[in-house]
Simulated scan of single mutants.
Amino acid sequence: MSKRDYYEVLGVAKGVDEKELKKAYRRIAMKCHPDRNPGDAEAEEQFKEASEAYEVLSDSRKRSAYDQYGHAGVDGAAGGGGYGGGNGNFSDIFGDVFGDIFGGGGGGRRGGPARGSDLRYTLDLGLEEAVKGTSVKIKVPTLVSCKPCSGSGAKPGTQPKTCSTCGGVGQVRMQQGFFQVQQTCPTCRGKGKEIGDPCGSCHGQGRVEETKTLSVKVPPGVDTGDRIRLSGEGEAGTDGGPAGDLYVQVSVNEHEFFQRDGKNLYCEVPISIFDACLGGELEVPTLDGRVKLKVPAETQTGKLFRLRGKGVTPVRGGSAGDLLCRVVLETPVSLTGKQKELLQELKGSMEGTKHSPKQSSWFEGMKNFFGDMKL
């Protein structure tokens, strides 16, 4: 049976560039690969045909001969059937095209030194500590390099040997259908080395568990969600690789008086009916101590007073925020009979006058809403 035109097999035009050629081959190979179509003779034949076509057209010398003389110009040069032979171009495509099938790819050794994992530690702070900054000691369980073997995993006085299975590469070639793919060496698990006499402390792992005590300097102005990075304080690397980092995640606890919103602080200040009516001076708390707050006469509950610069200086710089105090009118309780009489007398003296502007406007609004209904 005569062979089909190679360009037709891959579904590309004669002047196709290398990138589009590879993309076309990849599409067919992924669809028709025998390992994805077990027992399908037609798919296997299509895969062989596409592989042969790609082997020829991906090689500039073979492609030139094919363009001039057709199949006669490349007979016997297509690797004995179009899969597995030929030059480096064709073998290199396996890693690019089939890496996602077999998890291998054309990459090199997977072993060797590897960076240790990063760690995270949640640090609970009080509001004062977060605003003013502090220094704390923390204990972190982690993996550290084994001291007796210096992290090699081999018994002191001995050294790991080159893996006899992979020759130190960390990978072995395995036959998968019509071609070879690389897989992690099962003997050394990708490290490229074997430990004949393991270290008694780490049992050949090169790392041991340990709880480290670290000092963390917390800068002023941090807030919940901020992270402090301690370089090199994560897990130790393997085979001499660098250690990971430790990320200290800040969590600020709720405060008895203050709520934080960015660089501003908020608090509620109870105020008596007398101070609200007559005005006065209140003592309010700040993170720097108590300060005096002047309240004008006829102050209504919910009124906000701003104390500038009494908030938080942001950790990334800038001016300090403010403290906003909301006064809350407190109703007297446990009144004596005499006190109740005085209040009744005061109430009577205020009837018919507009001493409660909000209440008056509210009742007027209600009347309009219900169409002047008698309440």
Rank of each mutant, 00 (worst) to 15 (best):
K62L: 14
V12A: 15
V172N: 04
P156A: 00
L324Q: 13
V252R: 04
L57W: 10
E52Q: 08
K139E: 09
H355D: 01
L278D: 09
R36Y: 11
P220Y: 13
R308A: 08
E44R: 07
C267S: 10
E209G: 06
T165K: 14
A65G: 13
H203Q: 12
D40M: 09
L57K: 09
G221N: 11
L343Q: 07
A236K: 06
L278E: 12
K374A: 07
K367W: 10
S117V: 00
V97F: 12
G279W: 09
I195K: 00
P242I: 14
M174Q: 14
Q68K: 05
E209W: 06
R4F: 08
T238Y: 06
A53S: 09
T353A: 02
D35F: 09
K292D: 06
C199P: 04
L304R: 08
Q176K: 14
D75K: 08
Q249C: 15
A24W: 10
G204D: 04
D223L: 05
P38G: 02
G170C: 02
S201A: 15
T336R: 03
D59L: 14
S349I: 12
G232C: 14
H33V: 05
M350N: 12
L278R: 04
L214M: 06
R27A: 15
K310N: 07
N89G: 15
D372F: 05
F90G: 01
D261Y: 08
N89V: 14
F369T: 10
F369R: 01
A130W: 04
K338L: 13
L343P: 01
E283I: 02
K137V: 13
G196I: 04
E364W: 08
R173I: 05
T165L: 15
L214T: 00
R173M: 08
L346H: 02
T165A: 11
K14T: 04
R316I: 12
L287M: 12
K338C: 02
W362E: 02
K3E: 15
L21Q: 15
Y6Q: 04
L335M: 08
C188S: 06
T313K: 10
G167Q: 09
S51G: 02
G168M: 04
K48L: 13
A24H: 08
R290T: 10
E194M: 02
R120V: 12
L342E: 13
L119I: 13
E281A: 05
